[in-house]
Amino acid sequence: MKENTNIEQEKMDLYDDSEVALRTLSVLVENRPSVLSQVARLFTRNGYNIESIAAGATHTEGMTRLTIEFMATARQTTLLVNQLAKMVTVHSAKQLNPAHCIRRELALFKVRVTSADQRNEIIQIANIYRGSIIDVSNETLTVAVIGNEGKISALEEFLSSFEIIELARTGTLAMERGKYSINDASKEHGEFEYGKSIL
């Protein structure tokens, strides 16, 4: 029996082992020392390489939300999510359905400019990508842009005709569309909490 406890994942076969693809996880953890390494070591144990990881505070004090992207099959991901979900410091762990989530990333490009023409050209390109110039010096421009990896890669390609001095990316942030959230109670969530409760 395949379990599908939330509506969005109904179309996703959580135990399909045929295709390795980019998977996106949202994990809600307590902000404590060693939590991040505890989460990361599950990826090490299984030999998965983390493509992107982003961590930040949430609206609840003491809670951190992680967005992790890595390459694996759906089944491998499900087993990994289960191992995450049983950890005491993990409040929720969810595999996001790519068809039903929003994914965004922020990238900063520091580009060398040698002439006013170049400067104008870069500002124009940045505008096309709805990026903003957040720092200027005599020799450089720093462009900030938000988007999915396709958009950021496209901008990178454009800017590479100039000299990119530095590129920094936040890693993907993701969230489900619509009313669903990582905190949604489900039978499965309860089942994981059962094992953690003090008997």
Binding site: V88, H91, A185, S186, K187, H189, G190, E191, E193, Y194, K196, S197, I198, L199
Partner: peptide
């Protein structure tokens, strides 16, 4: 912290301390 852990596992309506 134990009280917090217990609160977590009993507050949600679907989290029952009993087998389903």
């Amino acid at each position: 912290p134990l009280s917090e852990l217990i609160r977590r596992s009993t507050t949600s309506s679907l989290k029952t301390p009993e087998p389903d």
